[in-house]
Amino acid sequence: MSEPLEALAEYVLAMADDELILSHRDSEWTGHAPILEEDIAFTNIALDEMGHAAVWYTIRAELLGAEPEAYSDRLVFQRSAEDYRCTPLVELPNGDWAFSMLRQYLFDIGEKVRLEGLLSSGHTPIAHAAAKLRPEEAYHERHTRAWVLRLGQGTPESRGRMQAALDGLWSFAPGLFALDPSAEPASQVGLVPDAGRLRQRWEDEVKMTLNEAGLTIPEGVAPVTDGRRKHTEHLAGLLTELQSVARADPIAAW
């Protein structure tokens, strides 16, 4: 396989891992959200992100010539934390509802600008996948943005919680655009969009919403830029739970 395509497979893995781990975090709200309707809505979003992860794992499998279903299962259920390529933002524990909504919103805008960029990817399956996933992301954005605005503009308590969430998340968010060195050649030949440009578009858009919500964007906070190989201590525990059933009976058929 050529170097750019190998790099593309690494890029796709990072996207898939971000989606999978955030999906798992979101799914932890199932049965615990503030009201029934939100429980269903956020569970829906968690399922969507898991579906996106499956799409990207499948594309990676095809790039590597592996059988998609078995390969995806192996990646998800049999990999240890150090082989994951997710960014710390998605690993952080859920915190309160404001924290989870804001994280999902920051992620949604990141995914939106990335999918827009991938529409013109030189690798056709990726361009097709981006086109397919975009409408779903538009819905996520609509939902999470509405919550950011309502909590930000709501009561002193909701505003305080949203501000605390922003203070806690802001340094981690740019990590969404971090490229693993192994994925860089894909960017150089136009298979994937330039990360710096994506980050700028993301920042312009989320700042508008955060301002509209009446929140104060933290200043002088150094972004967490440890790349995609250094994980928080939270990932290992998350994977233990995520993988427990599959590891209990590795050859079971589902």
Binding site: E37, E38, I40, A41, N44, Y139, R142, H143, A146, R150
Partner: peptide, 10 residues
């Protein structure tokens, strides 16, 4: 607006 979104999800 939120009712419409909740209706969609439910």
């Amino acid at each position: 607006e939120m009712a419409l979104q909740n209706a969609r999800d439910v």
